[in-house]
């Protein structure tokens, strides 16, 4: 990796990584009622992983994924999404019907629903799939540089 070792790049990217992940979670959560959600949040998170890979190499960035591998992150994401619809079946409702409830926390209230679980799955899936794909491409690039 030709950038690896660049002090400036490493310093910037390690901070951008953390910041971008925080932003991605915020986008995931606000997606309930405002623009955002799991898909866009996942894209931002994938961008964060790519920044990390540019500075520290794809291998390290891959290990930093949830569940320590992009593929596992993506697959478990889809599993969470699939599972989020199952509680509705026990309640005798149609698959993927999501129950809603409000959690009062004094100053503000939080809308809770298994939709969040669905969105979290989408978030992990997009992060794992697109991030993993980008890392593979970066590795291709790196191996061509060595050759």
């Amino acid at each position: 990796m030709k950038f690896a070792g660049d002090v400036l790049l490493r310093n910037v990217c390690s901070r951008v990584y953390v910041l971008a992940l925080i932003v991605s979670v915020w986008i995931l959560l606000r997606g309930h009622n405002e623009p955002g959600g799991g898909f866009i949040g996942g894209l931002v998170a994938a961008a964060a992983s790519i920044a990390l890979a540019m500075a520290f190499g794809a291998e390290l960035a891959a290990r930093r994924f949830p569940f320590r591998a992009p593929v596992r992150c993506g697959v478990l994401g889809v599993l969470i999404t699939v599972a989020s619809g199952v509680p509705a079946l026990w309640r005798g409702e149609a698959y993927l019907t999501h129950p809603w409830s409000k959690l009062e926390l004094g100053v503000f209230s939080l809308d809770l629903s298994s939709v969040l679980l669905f969105d979290l799955g989408v978030y992990l899936c997009v992060w794992g799939a697109l991030g993993g794909l980008a890392l593979e491409l970066l590795e291709l690039d790196a191996s061509e540089d060595q050759a």
Binding site: V71, R72, V75, L76, V78, L79, V82
Partner: peptide
């Protein structure tokens, strides 16, 4: 849908 999809996912985890 669900039976083959879940099978695909768990077999991917056991790759």
């Amino acid at each position: 849908l669900l039976v083959p999809l879940v099978t695909a996912l768990v077999t991917a985890l056991a790759a």
